[in-house]
Simulated assay, not measured.
Amino acid sequence: MSAPVVARIFTEYLAGRGMFSIAEGLTRDGIASPSAHDPERNRHRSGAAWSKSAVRVILSNPRYTGRQVWNKQRKDEVLIDVEDVALGHETKMRWNTPDKWVWSADQVHDALVDTETFEHAQQVLAAHGAGRATRERHRVRHQYALRGLLHCGCCTRRMQGQWNHDEAYYRCRYPQEYALAKTVEHPRNVYLAERDVLPALDDWLAQAFVPIRLAITVEQLFASQPERVADSDDGATAHTIADCDAKLARYREALEAGADPALVAAWTAEVQAHKAQALAARRTKHGQPRMTSDEIRALVDTLGNIGAMLANAHPEDKAEVYRQLGTTLTYEPNKRLVRAEAGIRPQPWGYGKCPRGDLNPHAQ
């Protein structure tokens, strides 16, 4: 981001303008947003306008002072499964509070804002909402069968789930999050009730399992399974797991012989982590055994009426079915129409790639 833009954002914010007002002004003046300035690193964003979050990120970035900053994050080792400690630990990145950041003594590049201005901005940010007498809010987890699958036809963003009157709805409030660019025509609020979509969607997906199309669907399901990998290095993985088991057995013997429990616990945690990594690598590489076409056909036959099964399924189960079928939905509010697409495609085993790419190097 260019120096005049950064200086303008800090100046206007400390003069009393809100982040959304700043975003509107930048968009109105034709200044490219960060996602438009670097589209290769922001392919998942439209870049049409500035957002409040983009302004906040700039206001919170200490490197605009010209100094290097370390220790903004830390690594915490947490149990993979508290119910099964044998799985070991995994590393989680956590944010440190600003008072634990480590600043370089000297400037390493030209400063876009001085340190006093930056610290003043952080004080204003930290004071947001201070002194308000608000009621304690109890967080309730609601189930949304179309979470992450429904997009707004006006701005292409994913619509957010919202619970109203004991029902699931999806909304898009683009004008409240982004400054409106001239090329974007968007209602103030776009709402869609889940009950208006699910029956038609379930009936449409069930058509893939009617007798006349069942053979094609079964072949597509068979082809979508991940390929099994050759067992070339299974010996090395098995050796690692066996070595970890042997060490754990020795540690138990040492503990029974009177060794320091704290020291044995540290050894055990380290070995359990190595074993968990080996087990996870083996599961990721090989995945689940591939089903044959006949097995898939037999499974479908046992389910009976697919449409009824979908209609009565739990929201989380329905969401997983929609995701596995590659379902995407786009709501056109002006036409009051939902466009649905689905395609069974080969999927790699394991987690998908983070859409933020190299902007989030710690994501798996």
Rank of each mutant, 00 (worst) to 15 (best):
M1F: 13
A7F: 10
T11H: 06
Y13W: 11
L14V: 13
E24V: 11
L26V: 04
T27D: 08
R28D: 15
N42T: 05
N42E: 06
R43T: 09
R45I: 15
W50Q: 06
K52L: 09
A54D: 08
A54M: 05
V55P: 03
L59G: 01
L59N: 01
R63A: 13
V69P: 02
K72S: 00
K72Q: 04
V85K: 07
L87H: 01
K92M: 10
R94S: 12
T97N: 12
V102C: 07
W103Y: 03
H109Q: 10
V113R: 02
Q123I: 14
A126V: 08
A145S: 03
A145K: 07
R147N: 11
R147K: 14
G148S: 14
L149V: 09
L149S: 04
C152E: 12
C152M: 14
C155Q: 05
R157A: 15
Q160H: 02
Q160R: 02
D166I: 14
R171H: 11
R171L: 15
R173H: 11
R173P: 04
P175R: 01
E177A: 08
L180K: 01
R188D: 00
L192M: 09
R195E: 12
R195Q: 10
D202A: 09
L205Y: 13
L205M: 08
Q207I: 00
A215F: 04
A215T: 06
I216D: 10
V218N: 07
E219A: 12
F222T: 12
A223V: 07
Q225S: 05
P226A: 10
E227N: 06
D231P: 04
D231Q: 07
S232K: 08
A238W: 10
H239A: 15
I241T: 02
P261Q: 06
L263N: 07
L263G: 04
V264G: 05
A266H: 06
A269Q: 10
E270T: 11
A273L: 08
A276K: 04
A280C: 06
K285C: 05
H286R: 05
H286G: 04
G287R: 00
M291R: 08
T292Y: 02
D294V: 08
E295T: 14
R297P: 05
R297L: 11
V300S: 00
V300F: 00
Y322T: 02
T330D: 12
E332F: 07
K335S: 10
R336G: 15
L337C: 08
I344R: 06
P346M: 11
P348N: 14
G350K: 15
Y351W: 12
Y351K: 13
R356D: 07
